[in-house]
Design a protein around this nucleic acid. Structure first.
Lengths: 195, 195, 195, 195
DNA sequence: CATGAATGAGCTTTCATTCAT
DNA sequence: TATGAATGAAAGCTCATTCAT
């Protein structure tokens, strides 16, 4: 794939991200995506097989990017508490970005129940998230602050608390409450881990 | 509304439940719903204002029914442990029903980010779920097994763990794993509450 | 046809008149007509063959009634001037009634271009109108005020001036202008006849 | 708008003209229009906002074209009699064209009673027609053949006679009678003007 | 007689996709 | 490469008509 092609695809995926966030997975049209990307109607179909292909690449892109960011944030810290805080900071980054991401991510989760391709992409994302959790938990253990029975279970629990709190926050539709849900989520994870 | 009308509406909503579960919120057509209900194309439109109206009633119906079942299950028990177990039993009732419900529920959550009506229905559902959690927690407190700092926070955490585990299970696409996720979820809640 | 049937049909036609005036010939539904008549949806179909049959009877009814009224008004007078004035008074009776009638009548004229049945009903109406014109003109001749070359031509001209002015007035959408158009129409007819 | 787009729109409007004339304003479908234009179903919606938009452009187009033709015909003549005759020739051009135009025009008049947009287009058409009448009348005055009290009133009367005779002719459904109605109309206008 | 539930044809409109330019 | 005109499938919705009650 040429450099130019690469760029075009990125441009379209970025536009698709904004478009899906604004209009919703099923409601968004290729025309919308083209408009957001400031290209003509035919371009998305030229650089991707079809609409679903654009959206699958979007899901891959955003889950991978989120993972890289969170991983980097956590790896930058040394103590358990700092790592956990850094993780939560990276997850609950700010109301605007979180709303954008979780609107789209929820759309994809809903689709994934009936779409193998999306389910696979999400499975990889889950694995990546679990690996971050494990990093934090292992550090907590080495500091003697906690004792995990099962990294996998704890990863699932942490993922549940993060997704669950984020969805509940999203449903309030209130950006002001972002800080509160973030703090509650952190506290819940701490409570769970250091029991 | 006459008794017969009532029945017809129930029938259509039931058909819509199966149809949405099979095809997805946006993909399902009124024709699908009519087919599943074994009635003609015009009937859903006769008994409801439009497609969205059918689906909003579906969301109301399923969230209310789930709540009533879970509440009844919990109220039937006396000890904290039994109540919690009964709750989890009612939530993780069996792979088939859980898949059906959560496929549809996830669809609605995804829609709710852009639809006030759905968001309101979901807010009521959340409140109802929180009230069940509170019932269980208060019993745990009276038994001296735990000490809640904040019923609201604990309700959110329990909801997060339940939704989170259920979504993760759904994403495996594996009915066999239902039992494992159920047990993990129960353990996570216990860990969280009795810390 | 029984007395009751007769009444029901009148009731439906009256409702249809109002309904068509409000909604338009093609836009009006049998449900509308039933609503206006305060009967159930099935009634119009019970008393008439189908929708077109209702509307054809409506056209017959309103053209016949208008003719009878105008004829009576003219026959009540003795001089040419009084007869003409009475005719115009009966035609331009008031803004509300004229709007109602001409909205519906225009709808039927438009339909009549493609509907033999309506065209026939309108042909009878024209004949009736011409007979009124003839009555007036003959009186004018016997008073020595005018000299018709051809009753038929003059009838057509009078009909043209009445329909034309009425349509132009209707297009203004202004009830205030009713009086002006009425006077202009009268003057135009006088000018035409007494040339 | 590109030249090609312009042409396509003209093509669709022309097809719509024939289609409406054949089937009627409300009865005609976008499919009909597409068929008459020998394009696919989606094309009319591609070039116009919706069905009403197509039809409004049609009304604008045909009223403007008729006006331009009539104006040109009148301006080509020098004497009052010639101008009037040219006008009537341009109005009563031939049975086929007149039937086509007046079928459609009557449809629009009927719609206009409930549609502001159409009413405005027709109001402009009326103004244009009045301006032609004025041209003729002023010439008649300068030749000393007649004396108008009020250009506006005379314009309305001429319009009434033209529309009225045309409608009456249309209702006969008889192309043979076209010549007779044309002559009668001309005579009626002459009688009216030179009284 | 009267009701209104039910049917299904038929409409407008949207939009992914194709393809000539 | 890029465009956007064109296609036509498929959707939601309306409503005349039928008919069991």
């Amino acid at each position: 794939m040429s450099r130019k092609t690469e760029l075009r695809r990125k441009q379209i995926i970025k536009a698709a991200y904004q478009a899906v966030s604004d209009k919703g997975y099923e409601t968004v049209t290729l025309q919308d995506i083209a408009n957001y990307a400031d290209v003509s109607k035919g371009v998305p179909n030229y650089y991707f097989q079809n609409k679903e292909d654009v959206l699958a690449h979007l899901l891959e892109e955003i889950t991978e990017r989120i993972y890289q960011k969170e991983k980097a944030a956590v790896e930058n810290e040394t103590s358990f508490q700092e790592m956990l805080q850094a993780y939560i900071n990276a997850v609950f980054v700010n109301p605007e970005d979180n709303e954008k991401f979780y609107k789209v991510y929820l759309d994809f989760l809903a689709q994934a129940t009936r779409n193998e391709r999306y389910r696979k992409i999400n499975a990889r994302f889950y694995q990546n998230c679990f690996s971050i959790s494990q990093l934090i938990i292992m550090r907590g253990e080495s500091e003697g602050l906690l004792h995990s029975m099962n990294y996998d279970d704890d990863g699932k629990a942490m993922r549940s608390l993060i997704d669950g709190y984020m969805i509940q926050w999203l449903m309030t539709g209130d950006h002001q409450k972002h800080r509160t849900y973030k703090e509650s989520c952190l506290k819940a994870i701490q409570t769970y881990l250091t029991s």
